[in-house]
Structure formats: structure tokens, C-alpha cells
């Protein structure tokens, strides 16, 4: 037996779990407010565009998106195994690839702002 490399994927999962636990409810609430017609300042086009135009704004958005995606991907991998999907290697490649590709896409769009 050798030491596992799972710490890499698990560490990001745990970091994502922590970040989403702290801020996800507030983020969803912001969008809900907007959906009910009380658009918070930050979600107006000018403000959000200005926020995402700064380098640190991009970093914050990308960080949240990547960690949330990775957290979800890793947990989905475990859950699929739990419900009897035994092809763990295939599942792992698939879910982490979705998280990675979506994150790269987010980075691409952020750089165009």
C-alpha cells in the first residue's frame, strides 16, 4: 500500500465545503432579492461589471466558483459510488473535468470583462 493522492481532491473539496457553507446562502439570497424585483446594487449591470473588471473581483468570483464546483464534483463522485455506480475512476474523471472546464470557462469570460 502506498499513501494516497486523494488529499489533493479532498483538500479542495473541504475548502469548497467551508467556503460555500459560509457564503452560499447569502449569495443565493442576493439573487432571490433580484428575482423579486429588489435588485441589490451589486447585481446591477454597472456595479457587477465594475466589480468583475478589477483583478481582485475576478479572483474572488473565480475562487468561489471553482471551489463550489470542485466541492460539488467530489461529493457527487462519492454519492454516485454510494448509490451503486462502481466505475469510480470514470466518474472521477467526468465530474472533476466538468468542474475544471466550467472553471476555465468562467476564467475566460472574466478575462473578457
Amino acid at each position: 500500500m502506498a499513501k494516497s493522492n486523494k488529499p489533493v481532491v479532498w483538500g479542495l473539496f473541504a475548502a469548497g465545503g467551508t467556503v460555500t457553507a459560509f457564503i452560499m446562502p447569502a449569495l443565493v439570497l442576493l439573487v432571490l432579492l433580484a428575482a423579486f424585483g429588489r435588485v441589490p446594487d451589486i447585481l446591477t449591470y454597472e456595479k457587477l461589471h465594475a466589480f468583475a473588471a478589477q483583478w481582485w473581483g475576478k479572483a474572488v468570483l473565480l475562487g468561489i466558483i471553482f471551489l463550489a464546483l470542485w466541492h460539488a464534483a467530489h461529493r457527487l463522485r462519492i454519492t454516485l459510488h454510494d448509490v451503486g455506480v462502481r466505475a469510480d475512476a470514470t466518474v472521477a474523471v467526468a465530474v472533476y473535468a466538468v468542474a475544471a472546464v466550467a472553471s476555465v470557462a468562467a476564467a475566460f469570460y472574466l478575462l473578457r470583462i
Partner: peptide, 15 residues
């Protein structure tokens, strides 16, 4: 002990 418990079949099978 880490050689054993930090392996895939060690702690990493725990969810």
C-alpha cells in the same frame, strides 16, 4: 502508521 492509514483503503474510503 501513515503508510497504512493514509492509503486509499485507509482513511480515504471514509465519507
Amino acid at each position: 502508521r501513515q503508510e497504512i492509514i493514509a492509503a486509499n483503503e485507509g482513511v480515504w474510503d471514509c465519507s
